[in-house]
Structure formats: structure tokens, C-alpha cells
Design a protein around this nucleic acid. Sequence first.
RNA 1: GCCGGUGUGGCGGAAUGGUAGACGCGGCGGACUCAAAAUCCGCUUGUGGUGACACAGUGGAGGUUCGAGUCCUCUCACCGGUACCA
Length: 924
Amino acid sequence: MQDNQDPNQAEQGDAIAQGYSPQTVETAAQRYWNTQHAYEVVEGDARPKFYCLSMLPYPSGALHMGHVRNYTIGDVISRFQRMQGKNVMQPMGWDAFGLPAENAAIKNRTAPAKWTYANIEHMRTQLQSMGYAIDWSREFATCKPDYYVHEQRMFVRLMKKGLAYRKNSVVNWDPIDQTVLANEQVIDGRGWRTGALVEKREIPQWFLKITDYAQELLDGLDTLPGWPDAVKTMQRNWIGRSEGLEIRFDVKDDEAPVAPLTVFTTRPDTVMGVTFLSIAAEHPLAQYAAQARPQLAEFIAELRQGGVSEAELETQEKRGMDTGLRAIHPISGEALPVYVANFVLMNYGTGAVMAVPGHDQRDWEFAQRYSLPIRMVIVDRNVIDALRAIKHDLSRGVGADPMRAALDGRSTDAYEVSSAVEQVEQFEQRILQQGAWTERGILVNSGEFDGMDFQQALDALATRFEAEGRGQRRVNFRLRDWGVSRQRYWGCPIPVIRCTRCGDVPVPEDQLPVLLPEDVAFSGVQSPLKADPEWRMTHCPSCGGAAERETDTFDTFMESSWYYARYTSPGATAQVDERANHWLPVDQYIGGIEHAILHLLYFRFYHKLLRDEGLVSSDEPARNLLCQGMVIAETFYRENADGSRDWINPADVEIQRDERAHVIGALLKADGQPVQIGGIEKMSKSKNNGVDPQSMVGKYGADTVRLFSMFAAPPEQSLEWNEAGVEGMARFLKRLWREVTTHAAQPDHPPTDTAALDDAQRILRRQLHETIQKVGDDFGRRHAFNTAIAALMELLNALGRFNDLSEQGRAVRHEALEAMVLLLNPVVPHISHALWQVLGHPETVLEDQPWPQVDASALVRDSVTLAVQVNGKLRATIELPCNASKEEAEAQARAQPQVMHFLEGLTVRKVIVVPGKIVNIVAG
RNA sequence: GCCGGUGUGGCGGAAUGGUAGACGCGGCGGACUCAAAAUCCGCUUGUGGUGACACAGUGGAGGUUCGAGUCCUCUCACCGGUACCA
């Protein structure tokens, strides 16, 4: 069986003598894979396809641990799936446009293009040192014209379809630098570099009509069982479908009618509780009212201060001002004040809301602050039901009694009525004093609608308003159209020509791409595109007259929304070709949870755009999604005299512990003096707690780094980097190496004869096959790589204790070691590649070896351990034959001394026997 | 603010409603060594007890269940997202 005829045996002998050398092993394996083109794939293959995709990296300069974790997960799944007989494609590319290149350009005075290309070269080398099974022949960078030309072509088609359009929208404006700022560049309402107070400014921008697909994007989530529920829930909430009524309020300025206000509400049942209206500062009516009211104009100007991010808008103090306009209540005819409020967003709904302080908490707080009336118009159904139970004569006009119509007209005595009315009054007092009651209930104080529930009120009001032409039923989405314009240089130019006569004209397809000049001087203030008249000035494709190019570029989410499709069709003249339908949808997508909403929604949207252009036939881009957690590490610092902190890298610190291993402090290795412990945080430059993957690979080898990143935590949780833990992984690989090489030095052995095994051999073989079963399930179904590795560690521990050098002992050991090398291969492919040869096989691509099969007969046990509980508390364990009956189990359990002791003086009421698990005796 | 998630020994984590703490790290003790490193073996949730064992214990408060780390309600802390970071 083990006849080592390999010509490389002498070389391996040296390797064995030298022990495990990661560098030698990894260089050799990677060289072999390259010469074999082991991970390049084509479509014409009998095996079923498996497209395994990891989110493409931004080339920020150096590989970080987050990348290593993401790509190692993808690589383990890729190699595992190939060992299951699939034709696996795992591509890689570069999300090469983006803000950091501009920031680096300002800092280092290099052109963004040059910086980006240098980073790509460096990071590709780093990625390759990790030994990922990537098909590098499909690689691309999104900043290259042969990539972005397709993005421009798609955009002009969307313009023609009416799915791309231009409108005004608000951005962060830095008045000193005279530039638009990203939300992350606004810190506490100020520009990050100038410190100037940021202002909101409206500018024209391009949008894609993602809202046309809102319903489909929502419904599509139900077709994705392989996506995490958290992601689907977040997307559902983000899309935010709601049903309600759109209602028009007539508005008067003094007594003169002005343009009416339209509001959308999901709570039309509260309409009789409206005591004022709130509108956004950008609302046309607010602008109108401000013309004649300097104080209001000043207030609106004040609201322009600060950034535009939702987090900032929603956490600021709620403020408002009366516009002086009066809205006419559509039913009561009452004149209601119209307020400008800073919490009403122009880009959500209609930019105006009807305020019901009695039944909306935000309106309640606003009403309190500005002394506006609060009205109860909904009462808890339980309160009403209590009243309805009382016999009550309604005919004796209760008049203003809020319960008038809610009560059912039967007679009762005065005492009960007054106690019932008291309940309602208490309810009303609670609303007035403690806050809005926002549940659905029964209408009161609502005239003809009294006594109705939510649905009845909705129907009645919709019918009435529709008949009057004053309102209608409407479905509203929280989702807004995708703004794709960026006032930046380092991005894909938007292929539009602005002509004073013809308007916005798309660049004709045969004139695409609109090239982004790469060799530019970049100061950070003005975009080189705007500054370059030669680039900007052109002719209108429509009338031939002088015209200007659009100088904005695309949001970089544009590139990352379709890269997955381009990988399938390298070299295609169109955006993708027929190969796309072979590979798509992606079978497994892997990336960070931080992309749960924006990227993953645009990615799904763009797939539908590709589909509607006839380029792909599927509805969704990815079947399965795995979101991995962050990589975090301990932080350390020293405080300076001025209170600022110098952050110290964990590699330069030594931890101090007391005799019980509690951490009591930390010292800087360089000077032996104490440093402060700053807590565990996401690896970042600012906290200097980043661990460089390259130095780790240099020190321990790629396999050890891969093993640790898969072992230290399950993939979807955050992973704490800990070098001592890395050393533990290196120890494991060393022991594996020793175990295999020592075994290989033993004489040949006959095949395993399962009938001839002694107890110890049978138990070891059973553990082996249990491990094969567990690892397959953990890798394939659960993606619980950490527990799979733990099971393999246990198996190696068992092998270490198994000192049987008999022929059958060696046979079982050989079976176990071969299986282990194959099971570990997805995680640590280099050492597996080498050890497979040590075990007597010729050099090969290990993914083409079949995955070890579980021998069901090896799993059979003749006895099983049961836990015995008394009233749910563990009191004993018993060993029973597997075929023991429930009665036998109960009898055995009751005979245990500890059980008898705890049952003393008690009556057994019930005995629960779960076969193979527990016996629980319930006694009292 | 809103949406989503997480919380278990000294630490990372395991336990797919059925023996809480697998596996790894750290610590302590031992073997080997002139010594150290490496390696190997043993112990390691807390409290009490020589011990067998007992009691407590999965952020906090309730609940469902024969049985809850796991399911439900409320609550606290932290993390991610919040539409121009990617």
C-alpha cells in the first residue's frame, strides 16, 4: 500500500530531517500550482459550476487582516467545493476608484492613478503569498477604460430608458475650501481639514431610478434563503414599504389661498387629531413664506448649517418655527398652523407631514415645546371594550363625551358610566402628560368616524377623499433614488454633454469611453476635470454647437455593482457575454456585514438592470451570502502632557498578569515602563493596533495565518488577533508534520482489516469517521470552520496518544493521517500539498482528490452515556447499551445512589426519557 | 434618533431546547536538560470541603418548558449601518 516510488523521495527525506519549514513548503506548493495553472477555469467542464466570490478589495496600499480573513473564508469554501467535485471559479480584482487615492495624492503629491497602480502591484504580491486558489487570468482594475466603458454605455442606455435623470439634491459644502465633502469628512458639523462650519447646498446631480425596482427588490428577498436573515431584515427596513393615504391640505396666507400641501400618512385614522403641519426647510412653501418674513428666513438659513447625514439630522435637537401660513383641515375646516421643522426631510415622502401629537411621539415632543394643542383621537381597544361591557343608555345625549359613539347604546346605571368615563379620562391624561399613545385602537373625538377601528377609518377616509379629489391611497417607500454623481476627479466620468440648446445629451455609444486623464496634478480643492478646459470643451452630439462635458464622476458603488458579472466574461466586447449565464448567479458571496445595505442593494439592483438589458437571465446576483465580522485587536497608549495619546502597537507591548492569570498591566518592551490598556477595537491606523499580515506570513507562514484566522472565531463574529494564539496554530502544524513524517518512516503495512481491529484501534477509527462527518458538515453546511479545526485537533491529540505500532495499528493511523491531510487541505493547502507526498503519493493538485468518505459501519457504538437529572438538575450519568429500552433507562437511573438520595421524601410525578440523551425525574 | 447584531471561565471561543465551558491561548505543577529553549504529561469557572460531593453560575429583570446559554417580553452595555468611507 505504501510503496514510496516517488522520485522526489530523497528531497522529501531532507524535508523530514529538517522538520516543518513553512517557507520551503509554501514556495514549492505555489510554484507547482502556477506551473499547473491549477486554478484557472473554463466553462466547458462536465462538473457542475461553483462561483465563489469575495468582495473585491480597495487598493489602499497594503493587505490588512480584514482582507486575509475575507479571502481565506472564500478560499476554504472554494477548495472544499472543488473537492466535492465542482468546477470552482474564484476570481479577484481591484475596486480602484475612490476617495483615499485623492487624499493620498494631496498628502504625497502623487497622481491618484500612479498611487493606485503601485498599490495594486504590491497587494497582488501579498495576496499571492497567501496561496489563494484564485483564477488570476480574470483579474481587472475598475479604473481602466476597458472596464468603465461598459458602465458608461449602460448609463447612456438607462438615460434613454428614463431610468437615469438629473435633479437637485443637497450636499455638504465646505465654504472655505469651496468643495463638497463626504459625510465622513464632516466631524461635529465642521469640515475635517478647514474646521469650517459645514453648510447644506443644493446642486444638480444624476440619479438612477432604483425606486422603480423597490417592490421587486423587496419581494426578491423572499427568494434568497441562503442570505442571512439580518441582512434581509435590514434591506426590508431600508426599502421601507408602507401603505397609507396621501392627503391634500389647502393653505392660506392671511386669507389668500396659496399652493396646497400634500402629506403622506400611514395613520389616516388619526386625522382628526391633527393640530398642526410640519414641513421641511427646503419645501417650496417654506421658501415662499420666508420671502415676506425675515425671522423665518433667518431660521431657515440657520437650518442650512450642519451636515446632511441622516445620523446628524436625526440626533439634533428638534426645532421649528411657525410660517404664519394656515392649512385648512380637510374635514373640520379648522385653520392649522404650518411649522418649518428640522426633522422633516425633503427627500422622504412629500417633505411635509401632518402632526398628530396625541399619537406620534416626535409630534408630541414638538407640541410640548411650542405649546401646541394635543388631542386624543384614538383609545386603546381594551379601554373601549371595558366600557362596552357596561350597559349604557346612549340616547341621553352625552354630547362631548368622547365615548359617545364608541358605546353601544344599552342602558346602565350612572355609577358604572362615571367609572367608565373616568377610565377614558385617565387614558387621555396619560397622553397629555406622559407622551403619545402610538398603538392602533378605536377612534374617538372624530365625529362621524367615532367607534371605527384602523381599517374601517382608512377605508372610510380613502373613499371620502378620493370622491372629493383631495387624497388617495398610496404605497410609499423609504428607499430613495440612487444619487450617482460625485464632484470628484478619481472616478468614472459621467458620459453626458451639457448643451445650452439641447440640454443634457448622452455621449453617443461609438464615442465611448469618455476617458479620465490619469496624468494630472491634483491639489484637492478643484477637480482636474473642471480645471481642464481642453477636456471640458466639446461639441454637442445633437446640434453640433459648442458644449461642455459633465465634470462629475460616478459613485464608486457603480463599479462594485457589476464587477461580479465581468469576471465571468474576460475580454468580452459587450459588458458581459453568454458566459455570464453559465456562471451566474454567484453560488457563494463573502464580504463584510458593513455592506449589508448599500452595496448589496445596489448589487441586486444592477443585476436587474443587466437582466432588463437582456445581458443575464437570472433575477438575483447571488444565491448564498456569508458576512464575516471585523478583525479587532487590543490597543495600548501613553498619554501626553496635553492629554493627547500616543498609540502603541500591540507587537511592542508585554502583558503582565497576576498569579491567577488576570491581566494587571502592560509594559513597553523597549523601555520596560508601563503603558495604558485602551480596550479592544477594530484594527485601524488611528489606534495603531493593526497587525501586518505580511510580517505574520514571514514569521509563521501563510498556512499558520490562514489557520488562526479560521480557528479563532466563527466567520460571522468579530475576530480578535492574538499572537499567542497564532503560535498555538504553528505548534499544531509542527505536530501534524512530525506525526506524518514519523509515520512515513515506519515499515509498510497491510490494508486495514476492520474485522481484526482491537478496541483501541476501533475507537480511534470511530473518532476518525466521526471527524470526517463533522468536518464535512461544518465546512459545507454550517460554515463553522473553527469547530471543524477543533475536531481535527482532537483527532491529532488522539493520534498522539495512540502508540500502537502493530500492523493494524499502523494501518489505522495511515488511514487517519491521509484523511486529516485531505480534510485540512482547504484551510492549510501548502502543508497538505507537501504531506500528501510524504504519505507516498505523487505531487498533485490536492483539490482533485476525492473528499474522504464516512464509513457508516465505523460509527457504530454499542453503549451510550445518558445524563440523569432530578427536577432538571444533573445528579448522575449512566452507561447503557444502545438498544436499551426506556424502561431499562428509567430503572437504571432510579437505582443511582445520588438519584435515590435526592428523591428521598419526594413523590415521583413524571419521568422523561429522551433516548440517547437524558433521563429527567420530576418529583415533588 | 432609527434599523440590525453581539454579550458564556483570566482570554478567544464550544454547546444546532437535553451533562455549560469542547478546542486553542494564558497560568500553575511535573518530566527531559548542566541550564535554557523546544517538546511531552497533569491540573485549571467560582465558593465551601482533605475528599466523595454540595451550592452558585452564560450582561440584568421577568416569563414559557419536565428541562433555557439557546425560545418570548422588558432592560443595560458595546459593535455595524444610517444613502458622498469602502
